[in-house]
Structures are given as C-alpha cells and as structure tokens.
C-alpha cells in the first residue's frame, strides 16, 4: 500500500501522549496499523513520554506500597498477560485492527443507512464518556458529495476505493485531516465504491445556508 497522506505529526504525537478522544484515536490507530512511517512517530512520542515520566518529581508512596505489590506478583501472572492484538488484519476482514475489533463483521455485512443519493452511513458506538462521532461513510462510485466545512477537527481514513477533492486524491490508508476552517467537496472516483472511516470532534457546518438542508444526508 502506498500511503500519500498522513495525519499531522502533532496529531500522532497527541495520540502517543494519550490525549485524543476515542473517535479520533480510533481513526489515527487505524492509519497506524497500515503506516510504518507514522508508527515511528509514535515511537518517538513514547520515548518523549518515557523521558518526561522519568524526570518527574517523586511523590512518596504509602509505606506498604512495595509490600502490597510484592504480595500480588504471583496473582498478576496467574491472571494472565492481556493478549495483544495479532496482525494488521487479525480477523481476516481486510480492515485495520482497531476497526476490525469494533466491527467484528466485514463491511459488506453492516447495516448501512442511506443518506441520499449515492451515500450511506453506519455509525459506530463509542463509550459514554467519549465526545464526537465515529462514522463509516460509503459513497457509490462517481458520487459528488455536497461542499461542507467542519466545526471541529475531522479525521478521515480511506478503507476502500478512492476520492478526490481540492486537497488531492485519497486512497486506501490515506488520511485527510481537516481543521475547523477547511471546506471540501469530495468526489468518489469511478469504478469502485469508496468507504471511509470518519471521526469528528464537532458537528459539521455547511457553508451555504441552503446546504444546511443537506445535513440529513450525512446524518449529522
């Protein structure tokens, strides 16, 4: 896979710091599963986190803290090491692990809700405390999406197919990271439907008041 568009370095660093909210973290992690270059950014980020942790001031622990830990060591091993996810495509779904583990079924088996001509969406559940939204958006080959902007950050990961907008061509593994001010009008390339994972921080904002009528198209 040739990846031409990455998340901003600052975004990957925020992921490494552990400060991205769940929807954005799922999108970034899905890209990471496919992108060695960005995994190296995470490794530098974690090295930074380690050095900062190591240079923190010490806060005294309770007197019995070490003894308590020592008494629990055998149980900790018996409880078993949490099993880490295996490969990129551990479930054979053709999807990055962070997404595959949430879906459990192939994209074609999902219930898609039509949102107008050529567009369907599937909302993914988030934990109660997570702000924002996480959507799968499917555009039929050749579909033109209405121009729209964003109220907060939005991160899109292309899972299948490709689309073009003013920022370039986006295909499998590519990330489009749009800030508050960005507007775009994606056009799905002919030939294959395009399926994207779209994580948003805020609600979409339509530039033209008439286009607000199109909100229901994306279900936002």
């Amino acid at each position: 896979m040739r990846i031409g568009h990455h998340p901003e370095e600052a975004t990957v660093i925020a992921y490494a710091a552990g400060t991205l909210d769940e929807p954005l973290a799922v999108a970034v992690a899905s890209h990471l599963a496919w992108c060695g270059a960005c995994r190296r950014v995470v490794r530098v980020g974690e090295a930074i986190g380690g050095a900062l942790l190591d240079s923190m001031e010490e806060t005294p622990l309770r007197d019995d803290a070490l003894a308590r830990a020592m008494g629990r060591l055998d149980a900790a091993v018996a409880a078993g090491v949490r099993t880490e996810p295996g490969g990129v495509d551990s479930d054979g779904l053709g999807l990055p692990y962070p997404l595959a583990s949430r879906l459990g079924v192939p994209l074609d088996h999902l219930r898609w809700r039509r949102r107008g001509r050529g567009i369907a969406v599937h909302a993914l559940p988030l934990s109660a405390n997570a702000p924002g939204r996480l959507l799968l958006v499917r555009g039929v080959a050749g579909t033109r999406m209405p121009a729209h902007g964003h109220e907060g950050a939005e991160i899109t990961v292309v899972l299948r197919g490709a689309y073009r907008d003013a920022f370039g061509r986006f295909a499998m593994g590519d990330v489009a990271e749009l800030g508050e001010d960005a507007e775009h009008a994606p056009v799905v390339e002919p030939g294959e439907d395009c399926i994207c994972l779209v994580a948003t921080e805020g609600r979409l904002r339509f530039g033209n008041p008439l286009l607000r009528l199109l909100r229901p198209i994306l279900g936002v």
Partner: peptide, 30 residues
C-alpha cells in the same frame, strides 16, 4: 525504546481507561 518509554505506555493506557474513562485504543503492538 527505553524501559521508561515502555512503562509510560502502560501508565498512559491505564490513565486513559480510568481517568479519562474511555477505552485506550491500541493498534496492535507496534
């Protein structure tokens, strides 16, 4: 990576889970 970096990742994931009350999103171990 350093031991401190490795321990940082464990601590970070616990903090996300318990203090942010969101699931830490892993992408499979790097």
């Amino acid at each position: 990576g350093s031991v401190a970096a490795w321990i940082f990742t464990i601590a970070r994931n616990r903090a996300i889970d318990r203090l942010r009350r969101q699931p830490p999103v892993r992408f499979a171990d790097i």
